[in-house]
Amino acid sequence: MDLARILKVESVSRLQPTPPRMVQASQAVGDAVALMRQQEVGCVLVCQENTVVGIFTERDLLRRILALGKPLTLPIVHCMTPRPVAVHPKDSIGSAVRLMEEGGYRHLPVMDGGKPVGILSVKRIVHYLAEHFPSTVYNLPPDPSAVQHEREGA
């Protein structure tokens, strides 16, 4: 099946989005930063009474905290991006890509019936594309300069 068709018919859930990392709206920015650092992710969802009210990404950290010299003790609700654009697990991969390109987003929350079920990142999509062309992307020409300088076991 060619890629254009795959992007139309395959759904976002096929990409197995990463499980969402969440913080409460009343928590401090520092808590979110610690969570992102510990989990090695680029964004967290901000929740209030079980609904998602915003998203906090590395860009928000740069733009709304570090650039303005604000302290990390601020409540996250004041420096998140409110009401993020989201996708449904049944949406096509192509529509998610289009949303990312139009909005310049790197992360989209995946929401099912008002509940967050995952985060879809641009890296995940690129990984999927790389997997789609295994013989092209993973079979790279040999590197002639890679020489073993010592005999094995010597």
């Binding site: 520092g30 930063v33 610690a34 992102m36 650092r37 680029g42 590395e58 860009r59 950290l61 740069l62 905290i65 570090l66 010299g69 990390l72």
Partner: peptide, 16 residues
């Protein structure tokens, strides 16, 4: 990059 800021700077150092 932004990732360097997140992992090595934010919250660990005050005076940028």
């Amino acid at each position: 990059s932004e990732r360097d800021l997140l992992t090595k700077v934010a919250g660990l150092h005050e005076d940028l």
